[in-house]
Write a protein that binds this DNA or RNA. Structure first.
Length: 590
RNA sequence: GGCCCAGUAGUUCAGUUGGUUUAGAACGCCAGCCUGUCACGUUGGAGGUCGUGGGUUCGAGUCCCAUCUGGGUCGCCA
C-alpha cells in the first residue's frame, strides 16, 4: 500500500477536547452529501462515525471527494474544529466537532452495496448472509461480535484466576454411538475408515482428569449433524469445563461465581447468587418442563386428589388409570378470551399433545364451564380454591392417564400463553439450576434404556441400589443451568469407578464387546487411578444470544449456516474434484 | 421426514374475481444544479428471466402440479 496518510486516531473517539488537533483518519464512507462547492463525508471505522468536510480551500481534496461513493475506503488528513452551535448534530457522539479535510486519499473503491450499512435495515436474511462481510459492518452486528469477544475474555480471566488450564482437544476424533448424528471425515491413509468431528470434548476432558490436569476448560467447537433451528447450528461453541475432586455442590457454586463474573462484566447487570434450584421432579410438576421459565408465574396445580371420584369421567378415569389432572389459572383470562378464542386454545392444546382442554370461566355472572355440571358445588369450590381462582379468571385443565403428557402439554400451553399475553418481562435474567435428573429414560425406538445425559453420568449414591430393579427411578448427579426458560448448559459428576461404569453399560444393554469397541480407551484409562470428577458445558452461542436479547443464534455467529446447513457466502458445502474422492477412497452415489 | 410462511427492479414492497396499454411505488443507483448538510435539497434518467420447470386458458405475476431457495416449527438434537 502506497498511502501516505497514516492513521493516528479513530473516528468515533474525537470530541471537543481534540479541537485544533491535526488528525489522520481512515475508514469507510458511510455517506457523502454533495452541496456543490462543499462536500460532507461521514467516515466510519470500528469506533464510530465522524463528519469530514471538504471545501474549496483544499482544491485537490475536494476534487477527490467528488469521486468517492458509499463504502469507499479512504484516508483523510485534517484538523478538528468545534462546530458552531447551529451546526451541531446531537444524534451522534462526535456531533459537536467535525474534521476539515485538507488531504484525501482513496485507498479502495467499492461497488454499491446491495443493502445500506446501517441498523434496522430492512433486508432479507439470505441477502445479509450472502454478503456477510457487509452485514458485519453494521453497528449492531459489530456490537455482537465485540460482545462475544468480551464474553470469551471474561471467561478466560475468571477460569484462569481459578486454576483452570485451557487445553485443546482433537477435532478429528472417533465416532461414538448414542447422541446426535456425527459429521464424518474420510481418512486418506486408512482406506474405508472415518474420523468423526466431536459432538463435545466429553471423553477427552475426562481423560484429562485422569491425566492429573485437575481443572480443565476449553472454548470448544462442536459438531452435530441434526436439523437446524433459530437457536441451533450444526457447528457451535461450547464452554466446556471439568474438575477433579469435586461434587455437585462444588460445580454449582463455582459456576454461579463464573456466571456472575461474566454477566456483570459484559452487561453491567448485577446478578444475585446463589441461583434458585429445583429438582427435575419439581420442575416438571410445577412448570411442565425441565427448563422452566420463571420470569412469570402461572404455575401448574395438581387437582387429581380433588376430582378422582368425580362424575366427570375424563378426569376420574385419568386419575384411576395412573395419570393425573392439572390446571393453570390464566389470571383475568375470562376477560381477554372470547368463547371462540377458548376453542382456539383447545386446538392449541391438542397441538401440544393433550387430548382436549377443559376450562372454567369465573365471570361476574357466575361460573361458565362445560364441565361444571359434573361437579357438586363443594368440589367445584375446591378446584377453584386450589388454583386461587378469582372473578375474571379463566382456568384450564388437561387430564390424561399419561402423567408426563399432562405436564408437558400444559407446560407448553403455559409458555404459549405467556407469549401471547405478553406476561414475560424481557429485562429479567432468571438463572436457575435444575438438579436430580433421571439417569435413564426408556427408548421406545430401541426397546431399551438410554442415558438421559450420557453413559458416564454418576447415579446418586442413594439410588445405586435401584439400578437393577427400577432403572427408571434412578436419579443422576446431573444438573442443568437454565436462563429464561432456555437450557444454557448442563453437566454431571461422572462415574470414576470402573465397576460402576461396567454396570452402567450393562444397564444400557451394551455388550462388553461394544463397550470395548466404542469406549475401550476410556475404560482402560479408568483402570489407572481416576480421581472423582465432574463438570459442565455451556452452549456459548446461546448464552451470548440470550444476554444480547437476540432472536436468533445466527446474529452472534460471524459466519452462520442456513437451515439447509449451507453457507450462502462461501456456498459450502460443494462438490469436490473426483481426484480428491479417489484419494479418500470415497465413491459417491446419489 | 411432516406442517406453516415467503420468493416481482440493487433493496423493501404493491399488483383486486385471470384481461387498461410498455408490470408500479419508495429507497438506492447514474447525470446536471447547489457553500452548512447530517434522512441534504432539486431536475432528469437508467434499471425486471415476476425463483425454476411444466400445465389449464383465447389470455397467467395472478389458477393447478412439480421443484429449488430462505425462514419458523414438530420429529430429531445422549
Amino acid at each position: 500500500m502506497r498511502n501516505k496518510i497514516k492513521r493516528n486516531c479513530y473516528c468515533g473517539d474525537l470530541r471537543v477536547e481534540h479541537e485544533g488537533k491535526e488528525v489522520c483518519l481512515a475508514g469507510w464512507v458511510q455517506t457523502r452529501r454533495d452541496l456543490g462547492g462543499l462536500i460532507f463525508v461521514d467516515l466510519r471505522d470500528r469506533s464510530g462515525i465522524v463528519q469530514v468536510v471538504f471545501n474549496p480551500e483544499h482544491k485537490e481534496a475536494l476534487k477527490t471527494a467528488d469521486k468517492i461513493r458509499s463504502e469507499y475506503v479512504i484516508a483523510v488528513k485534517g484538523k478538528v474544529f468545534r462546530r458552531p452551535e447551529e451546526n451541531v448534530n446531537p444524534k451522534i457522539p462526535t456531533g459537536y466537532i467535525e474534521v476539515m479535510g485538507n488531504e484525501l486519499e482513496i485507498l479502495s473503491a467499492a461497488k454499491t452495496p446491495p443493502f445500506a450499512i446501517e441498523d434496522d435495515v430492512k433486508v432479507d436474511e439470505s441477502v445479509r448472509l450472502k454478503y456477510r462481510y457487509l452485514d458485519l459492518r453494521r453497528p449492531q452486528m459489530l456490537r455482537n461480535v465485540i460482545f462475544r469477544s468480551k464474553v470469551n475474555k471474561a471467561i478466560r480471566d475468571f477460569l484462569d484466576a481459578n486454576g483452570f488450564l485451557e487445553i485443546e482437544t482433537p477435532i478429528l476424533t472417533k465416532s461414538t454411538p448414542e447422541g446426535a448424528r456425527d459429521y464424518l471425515v474420510p481418512s486418506r491413509l486408512n482406506p474405508g475408515e472415518f474420523y468423526a468431528l466431536p459432538q463435545s470434548p466429553q471423553l477427552f476432558k475426562q481423560i484429562l482428569m485422569i491425566s492429573g490436569m485437575e481443572r480443565y476448560y476449553q472454548i470448544a467447537r462442536c459438531f452435530r449433524d441434526e436439523d437446524l433451528r433459530a437457536d441451533r447450528q450444526p457447528e457451535f461453541t461450547q464452554l466446556d469445563m471439568e474438575m477433579s475432586f469435586i461434587d455437585v455442590e462444588g460445580v454449582i457454586t463455582l459456576n454461579e461465581k463464573l456466571i456472575k463474573y461474566v454477566t456483570e462484566k459484559v452487561t453491567g447487570t448485577e446478578i444475585e447468587i446463589p441461583f434458585p434450584r429445583m429438582t427435575f421432579k419439581q420442575a416438571m410438576e410445577k412448570y411442565g418442563s425441565d427448563k422452566p421459565d420463571t420470569r412469570f408465574g402461572m404455575e401448574m396445580v395438581d387437582i387429581s386428589h380433588i376430582v378422582s371420584d368425580s362424575n366427570f369421567k375424563v378426569f376420574s378415569q385419568a386419575v384411576k388409570g395412573g395419570g393425573c389432572v392439572k390446571g393453570l389459572n390464566i389470571k383475568k383470562g375470562g376477560e381477554t378470551f372470547s368463547r371462540r378464542q377458548i376453542d382456539e386454545l383447545a386446538e392449541k392444546a391438542k397441538e401440544f399433545g393433550s387430548k382436549g382442554l377443559a376450562w372454567i370461566n369465573i365471570t361476574l355472572e357466575g361460573i361458565k364451564s362445560p364441565i361444571a355440571k359434573f361437579f357438586d358445588e363443594k368440589t367445584l369450590a375446591k378446584i377453584i380454591d386450589a388454583l386461587q381462582g378469582e372473578t375474571g379468571d379463566l382456568i384450564i385443565f388437561v387430564a390424561d392417564t399419561n402423567t408426563e403428557l399432562v405436564m408437558t402439554s400444559l407446560g407448553s400451553m403455559r409458555i404459549y400463553l405467556a407469549k401471547t399475553l405478553n406476561l414475560i418481562d424481557k429485562r429479567k435474567l432468571n438463572f436457575l439450576w435444575v438438579t436430580e435428573f433421571p439417569l435413564l429414560e426408556y427408548s421406545e425406538d430401541e426397546k431399551r434404556f438410554v442415558a438421559k445425559h450420557h453413559p458416564f453420568t454418576s447415579p446418586m449414591d442413594e439410588d445405586i441400589s435401584l439400578l437393577d430393579k427400577e432403572p427408571a427411578k434412578v436419579r443422576a448427579k446431573a444438573y442443568d443451568i437454565i436462563l429464561n426458560g432456555t437450557e444454557l448448559g448442563g453437566g454431571s459428576i461422572r462415574i470414576h469407578d470402573a465397576a460402576l461404569q461396567k454396570k452402567m453399560f450393562e444397564t444400557l444393554g451394551f455388550s462388553q464387546e461394544r463397550a470395548e469397541n466404542n469406549f475401550g480407551f476410556l475404560l482402560r484409562a479408568f483402570e489407572y487411578g481416576t480421581p472423582p470428577h465432574g463438570g459442565i458445558a455451556y452452549g456459548l452461542d446461546r448464552m451470548i444470544m440470550l444476554l444480547l436479547g437476540l432472536e436468533s443464534i445466527r446474529d452472534c455467529i460471524a459466519f452462520p449456516k442456513t437451515q439447509n446447513a449451507s453457507c450462502l457466502m462461501t456456498e459450502a458445502p460443494g462438490e469436490v474434484d473426483i481426484k480428491q474422492l479417489k484419494e479418500l477412497h470415497v465413491q459417491v452415489k446419489i
